[in-house]
Design a protein around this nucleic acid. Structure first.
Lengths: 244, 244
DNA sequence: TAGATTGTTAATCGATTAACAATC
DNA sequence: TAGATTGTTAATCGATTAACAATC
């Protein structure tokens, strides 16, 4: 299996592909738990709302995991996908912002199973500091640099309001994290060597609102072609992806 | 301004474009609050990590909001973007799953400001039912159909564990919601007229882990060209988008 | 006017899908 | 063997970027 940035002269792998790997991994893990031994690109595609062609091409970026006539061995593929994502690596994580979202993240148990270990939670509200969240006492922001250094923290999750996010990001970067998981509705500016992954809930919700309204419009508004015949668009748009 | 599915015979608008509108709206709202009157495609692009060209082309899908030599009037653009996203519409929302994530979503205050009104929270754990969350008593799942009908609920947020998600989705669809905001790590199967917006936190976190590990690899692994000179890749990859 | 900015068309780039030889 | 499935190449499709006439 080659690295995404392999020194072998091949192309680096696009983020589009990378973001699909966790979905494959989810499916393959479930299959392994069910005791399934083999899975074809067709089956994998169906489970992930993809085409078989895309599945095969995605996987081929990392090596040849398949066996002609059998498809992919579930155990082999499971291990390969985990290695690609570095699930064998352990990441230390801190959360900044002990509000509802920060607490929810802190208590998200499946993270630990995937190698992400919560080391501290920070907040700057005096009445919150010292409260216990997910087994950890909330600490003041001032302790961040020390904690990140001493506990070798790789990742910081930003769960503070938008206006405070950039300052928190800068503090995390100065403390030495290599990646930021950003839940604030803010476009962070960070040095190029820091990875940022955004989870913009409001973008997601507004998009959903748009979709719902557009589909309602499609169902309700009759289309009147010049000829004068009448038809509605109900049922024409069957898929969930791409254009609506 | 034309609709995304305008009966005028033009092309529908791609989801890629739609998903950028909330980001533009965020920036434009902030500018309006600051009293800024005009914004150019360059400025907007910078604030959203886009190119000016893309900004202009995105906006041109919905109409001509700009004025040559001035750029876009902030008030006009703000209103236009809100209209595109249907922020004038009010959506009624229920949450299924009163765990940490469900509670965090329930308490996300900015939703109300954007026209999303929480009407109920459901759970099926007897010890949780009746607890107060965001001013509402948690209800048993059995009441979902009635609540959705009586309160004209449009959207359901799924905040239950993966294995329960598909059943909850079917229940929401049967009750009559038009859209699902899915936080479970599951590929939901729903009828084509139901919109689904996924927020897969584990995909996001695993992707971040991958990025961090790859960048570390880039910095640490020296590249040895055939000639024998030695160089690291530090600093070559400046951007945050696209290939890593 | 000269210069700056839009809206739009054309060119480029990248991602997805289709097709098919290789293979067990 | 016949048939099914991969890995990979080629074709299509869509998204982004560049370029530029129109305009104030």
């Amino acid at each position: 299996m080659r690295s995404a940035t392999g020194a072998d002269g091949e192309q680096p792998i696009s983020m589009t592909v990378i973001r699909r790997i966790p979905a494959y991994l989810n499916v393959v893990r479930k299959l392994r738990e069910e005791g399934v031994e083999w899975v074809s690109s067709h089956e994998l595609a169906k489970a992930c709302a993809m085409t078989p062609s895309s599945v095969r091409q995605d996987l081929s970026h990392f090596g040849k995991f398949g066996l002609t006539r059998h498809g992919y061995n579930v155990m082999v593929l499971n291990q390969a996908l985990e290695q690609i994502l570095g699930v064998d690596n352990a990441f230390n994580l801190v959360i900044v912002g002990a509000g509802n979202l920060g607490r929810a993240i802190a208590n998200y148990e499946s993270f630990r199973r995937r190698g992400f270990f919560l080391r501290a939670i920070f907040d700057n509200h005096p009445e919150v500091i010292g409260q216990e969240v997910a087994g950890l006492a909330v600490r003041p922001l001032e302790q961040m640099a020390q904690v990140v250094r001493e506990q070798r923290v790789h990742l910081g999750a930003i769960c503070v309001p938008g206006p405070a996010a950039q300052a928190v990001a800068e503090r995390l970067v100065a403390a030495g994290v290599a990646g930021i998981w950003n839940f604030a509705p803010t476009q962070l500016v960070v040095p190029s060597w820091v990875a940022v992954e955004d989870v913009h809930l409001s973008v997601s919700l507004l998009t959903l609102g748009y979709l719902v309204r557009e589909r309602a419009r499609q169902r309700e508004e009759p289309v009147r072609p010049p000829g004068g015949t009448k038809a509605t668009l109900r049922g024409i748009y069957g898929g969930r992806k791409g254009r609506i």
